[in-house]
């Protein structure tokens, strides 16, 4: 193979890629914060006694879980402004789309974890005279969060990778910048390899953390 690697293009483009990475990290972190809280609320709603509260949120979870993220992003960027008259800058809109997507996945993780909270724990909460809200705050949430943590982290990393899709709606994240550099420099191999490695360098260690947390939880349970 006579292809000549010229990685100095990457060095030149490095600051641009880092600009993009900053956007990607921003997207990921804020979307995760939204999803960790909103996801729990949605999980509680889905487990509600009242059909009217349950149904719309169950449907929302299924809609987000059963359609491609790319469709969701395009939908948010093109349809939310028209339908709801909400006009946001690309970055907040990207955060909103990814945050709600992730919230639905996290809600599933929380729901499974909440249902696994031991009955006696809830009984103890009642016996101690906690109000329903206090029971959620002091008994249900800590249990569920711990049990769901490995899945929550994994979901978080997946979102980090999915965030690359906002490049398609011209949000200047790492993927977008990488594509710009690749076309302008005519060096797709070096650029896409470098961009892939940057994504990998972040998501791989975090996935190890998730595996480690899971092992520790398993060990604690055994």
């Amino acid at each position: 193979m006579e292809y000549e690697f010229q990685f100095h293009y990457i060095l030149q483009a490095w600051p641009v890629l880092m600009e993009g990475l900053k956007v990607t990290v921003q997207l990921t972190v804020i979307a995760n914060i939204i999803a960790l809280t909103l996801g729990f609320v949605i999980a509680l709603l889905v487990l509600s006694k009242y059909w009217l509260l349950r149904a719309p949120f169950a449907l929302m979870i299924e809609l987000f879980r059963c359609t491609p993220v790319l469709v969701q992003i395009l939908w948010f960027f093109y349809c939310v402004p028209i339908l709801f008259g909400i006009y946001l800058a690309p970055l907040p809109m990207g955060i909103l789309a990814l945050g709600i997507n992730l919230a639905c996945f996290n809600a599933e993780a929380y729901r499974a974890a909440i249902q696994a909270v031991p009955r006696e724990q809830l009984d103890a909460g009642v016996a101690l005279g906690f109000s329903p809200l206090q029971r959620v705050r002091y008994v249900v949430f800590p249990h569920a969060f711990r049990a769901a943590l490995p899945v929550l982290i994994t979901n978080g990393i997946t979102l980090f990778q999915q965030s690359a899709l906002v490049a398609i709606v011209a949000l200047s994240d790492l993927m977008y910048m990488g594509r710009q550099v690749a076309t302008q420099s005519y060096r797709p191999i070096e650029t896409y390899t470098a961009v892939a490695l940057i994504y990998f360098a972040i998501s791989f260690p975090v996935s190890r953390v998730a595996a480690w947390v899971e092992q520790r939880l398993d060990a604690a349970r055994a």
Partner: peptide, 11 residues
């Protein structure tokens, strides 16, 4: 598993 599918496609 650790990189976006989009970049795999481009690559």
């Amino acid at each position: 598993r650790g990189t976006p599918v989009l970049i795999q496609i481009f690559w």
